[in-house]
Design a protein around this nucleic acid. Structure first.
Lengths: 379, 379
DNA sequence: AGAATAGTGTCTATGAGACAGTATATG
DNA sequence: CATATACTGTCTCATAGACACTATTCT
């Protein structure tokens, strides 16, 4: 009986010479419950060509296109198994191995590779059945078990909220590439060498909105890691929340893609509302988080310009919480000296009719004690 | 006259067959002011071996060690020039190309590569002199193709709190391996194929404490991604918080390593308190998070057995918050019917002296409205 | 009986919310 | 002037906290 194992595996090797061994190993993996992301395991055409084609490959595609597609399928797997009878590794396989190593994926070999000076860690040369045993976690015997690890591409996605025309809006980009081409998504991107997730989020925010500097507060929310959340492979996304004042220029076009502010409720529940990947879920979490942040911290001032009136601030709360607040009570609570929420500047704004409102600036406090309570009667 | 250019370049190709061409190209680069990071350009020994050695290579090193050192030198360059007369690319060069591509470095080719199905962007096939021209800015050249990404090993680390002898304690393990061998660390481990971070955290919790099932609430806290936080490489850790009832057996020995409950304040501030990696920081965040969780949610019941008294529950709050609470007021607030925090079972506990306390069970509520306020006077 | 713990009653200070009233601008 | 907006005063109700008091057990 086979062990049942979760996960996915890609097989690489010279399909032209060793396809029988590839198929045999693939069958062992599939019988154990593993998904084989590459090769397709169908019949081979033109087995006399250097670079083999499968019946399932699109007929017009170039070798380069097919190889790029194969690379994506390899990267989508949790680990790579190299089928190299007698240690033979061809040129294309060597190239694939280079990319896979550089990505830090787990690699196992059927035989010790010959004529390629790479380091093969102990315990990574084994046959398909032994690999399944290790993956299942029940290897009897003394063999030093190296637990398979997953490597992933970390990304930072940002929920950027602003308030425009008294509505809470979120910045979304329209994807120019597959997967999810044409769908709306949160701005974000891959972590680059030397960056922390926070650095990446800051960079993306600057690229998308032009905003940067110490005034911008970025808050880490949650990390999304479902193995199948991105069809390109293991992509682990950490979501950040940014809250920015009214009309930062939309710089979207810089990245050759559309970016635009969208009303939040509409983007979540309206028609055409389904976002790419799990970004709908991330946005919902971000909204809920922003609401509680406004209760417990002074971030609401980050939605406002440098100088703002108490009514400006109240409109922020009303937009985010989606309810009306009593102007008088709000005023009294916020202006309270002891909290450090806002500080009076002495200036007034002379614009509209009515008594000219006093202008305030952000106070020193970060946390609100006691919090602004959102009554459970106006959800 | 040569153009003068700043920067560095690595040359790759079959040194055994085409070393003359490599040297010629290198001389062009050096004459233009470029640094050549690889190869060393000295005399070759053993030119009959498949994998060539330079006179400057340490004599005892293995092929694998030399190749790893070469990789580092290639990565240190600003761009890579492939010396491939007649388009010939050997196995080792194909491997290097894979790693270099995956890193997103700029690559140029002396000839269009043959027998390797990779895409060669237009304008990247040129000789050394033309490349120098492009780098000097005299001729517009193609931009570097891809942005380098990072790949990382995701891990889940768990802050497991319990209350023993009226103290808040945390489960720590003593590391058996370098780095930080012998230091205390949070339990945790690498994500395995098919797992989400939550799956990994659940598995680690089960392995360390034997606890599992729907009663255990695991809460994701924060993701730590500083590039240098783990000397082994890019390890991105997501921290989880678990809160468990009194004396779960410590199963630490199962994993051939020590595991033990440690009083929290001592582990943070006492002697021998410095934890491995950034786990001290993670533990501090976890403690702060647990404190606010107790304010806003009903998790405190998770510290207790199935049936508990109001005094048991109060001791949980006192241990986590590190302060004393008024027994009478606490009782009244918690037992309030409307909150759904606890439900009366009708039973009483007959154990100690004094009036036998009523036994309660966890109520249906997850969130507390209004929250249990921790006064800012007893921090 | 006395000690110890559980649970309740009651008073006070504080703050949220409702709403009326005052201040000061524009048209 | 009317009107709109900003701000303040005041009343009510809910609740946190302090603390005394009652209830029920064990020794």
């Amino acid at each position: 009986m086979y062990t049942t194992v979760k996960g996915s595996v890609a097989l690489i090797g010279s399909f032209r010479q060793h396809y029988a061994q590839v198929l045999a190993a693939a069958r062992v993996f599939q019988a154990s419950g593993l998904t084989v992301t590459s090769p397709p395991l169908g019949p081979i055409l033109d087995s006399d060509r250097e670079f083999v084609r499968f019946a399932s490959d699109p007929p017009g595609a170039s070798d380069q296109d097919l190889q790029a597609a194969t690379m994506e399928k390899i990267f989508a797997a949790d680990l790579v198994f190299v089928v190299d009878p007698d240690g033979y590794i061809g040129r294309t396989t060597a190239y694939e191995l280079g990319r896979v190593h550089e990505r830090g994926m787990a690699v196992y070999y059927a035989e010790p590779p010959k004529d390629l000076p790479i380091s093969v860690p102990p315990g990574t040369v084994l046959d398909a059945r032994q690999l399944v045993q290790i993956l299942g976690g029940n290897t009897p015997g003394p063999a030093p078990v190296r637990r398979p690890r997953v490597s992933a591409q970390p990304t930072a996605d940002i929920v950027i909220f602003t308030i425009r025309s008294e509505q809470l809006q979120v910045l979304l980009v329209r994807r120019g590439k597959d997967p999810y081409r044409g769908r709306l998504a949160l701005p974000g991107g891959f972590v680059r060498p030397g960056e922390s997730l926070e650095d990446t989020a800051k960079r993306e925010l600057r690229e998308e909105t032009g905003l940067s500097g110490p005034g911008i507060r970025l808050k880490q929310l949650h990390t999304y890691s479902r193995p199948d959340r991105d069809p390109r492979g293991r992509v682990v996304s950490t979501a950040f929340l940014a809250i920015v004042p009214d009309p930062p220029q939309v710089v979207g076009a810089s990245d050759a893609r559309d970016a635009d502010w969208v009303e939040v409720e509409e983007s979540l529940w309206g028609p055409n509302s389904s976002l790419a990947f799990d970004h709908g879920e991330i946005l919902r979490h971000g909204l809920e988080h922003a609401r509680t942040l406004l209760e417990h911290t002074t971030v609401a001032t980050a939605f406002c310009e440098d100088l703002f009136t108490i009514t400006d601030l109240r409109r922020v709360y009303e937009a985010v919480w989606g309810c009306e607040l009593n102007p008088g009570n709000f005023h009294r609570k916020v202006v309270e000296e002891t909290t450090g929420f806002v500080v009076r500047t002495g200036k007034v704004r002379r614009a509209s009719r009515g008594k000219p409102p006093a202008l305030f600036r952000q106070g020193p406090a970060e946390l609100l004690h006691p919090p602004m309570m959102r009554s459970r009667r106006n959800p």
